[in-house]
Simulated scan of single mutants.
Amino acid sequence: MRLQILRLLRLLTLGVVLAGLLSGCGYNTFQTGDEAIKSAWSEVLNQYQRRADLVPNLVGTVKGYASHEKDVLTQVTQARAQVGAIQATPELVNDPAAFAKFQQAQAGLSSALSRLLVVTENYPQLKADAGFRDLQAQLEGTENRITVARNRYIKAVEIYNVSVRSFPNNLTAMIFGYTVKPNFSVDNEKAISTAPKVDFAAPAPATPPAARPAPAGPGSPAASY
């Protein structure tokens, strides 16, 4: 009985020492950072999904006024389909190749939506449509939320990656298999956020107003009664 108690005390002591070592070497920091990344990533996905849900109604509304802009409408629909084809699981944030593919698909949808909004500038009746204005406002609000969510995710990953690379945390990371996580790249953010130029055919010349007769002056035939 006494021997069993001594073994139990040794195990408890070893557990306390091990817990202290893990805490001091960054193990708990990794857990906190990983949960922060998961939370931030969920919000990123939530806002991207919100944008994707707006696309069908937006395309349908534009089509009602600009049905002949088939190329632009098709590009938006295809870009949304590519986004939907990617399984945005929590594991995606640990796979640099999958993360890059996800980012590329979202950038493609951003670019296609930019082209669509450029086209709508040429249709005053569409811009005056209350439904379109509401969708446009929702899209703009969602884009702002995406920016905020992405920035939070970028910051969370930055803090986590610094922990993984710093000594002596990096030793714990190697033992337990923690590695740096991929992050959003900002190299092409400016190109994505800038609406592309769209060349349209030269507009038809305006119809000149009908000629009006010159006002009758003194001595003109029209002035004689």
Score class of each variant (00 low, 15 high):
D187W: 09
T77C: 04
F132Q: 05
A85Y: 07
A223N: 12
A195T: 06
H68C: 00
R145Q: 13
G15L: 12
Q87M: 09
P209G: 14
Y123A: 05
P124T: 02
K197G: 11
P56S: 07
Q78C: 02
A128D: 02
E189G: 11
T207P: 13
E143S: 09
V186C: 13
R80W: 03
R145T: 03
V72H: 11
R51H: 04
S185Q: 12
Q78D: 13
N151D: 14
S185D: 15
T32N: 11
T172F: 08
R51F: 08
G24F: 06
V16H: 08
L117M: 05
S185M: 05
L73C: 03
R51G: 07
G26L: 01
A214S: 14
L54E: 04
N161H: 05
V198R: 02
T172Y: 02
S224A: 14
A137G: 07
T29F: 10
F102A: 08
D34W: 08
R51I: 01
K127F: 00
A105N: 00
T61Q: 15
D95R: 04
Q104F: 07
G24N: 10
V119P: 05
V186R: 15
T13W: 12
P205Y: 10
D187Y: 11
P208I: 12
D34F: 03
G108A: 09
H68S: 10
V180L: 03
A19R: 05
A216H: 03
V62R: 01
S185T: 13
K38Y: 00
A149R: 04
E121C: 03
L8S: 14
V72A: 14
Q87V: 08
S163H: 14
F184N: 00
R10F: 15
A191R: 13
I5C: 03
R133I: 09
R165N: 13
P203W: 06
T61A: 14
L113C: 07
A195N: 06
G20W: 01
Q75N: 15
R165L: 12
E121M: 03
T32E: 10
A204P: 09
K155V: 14
A214P: 08
D134H: 14
A195I: 07
A210H: 11
G33N: 07
R165H: 12
T29H: 13
P168Q: 08
A36N: 06
V118M: 00
A85F: 01
R145K: 12
P90T: 04
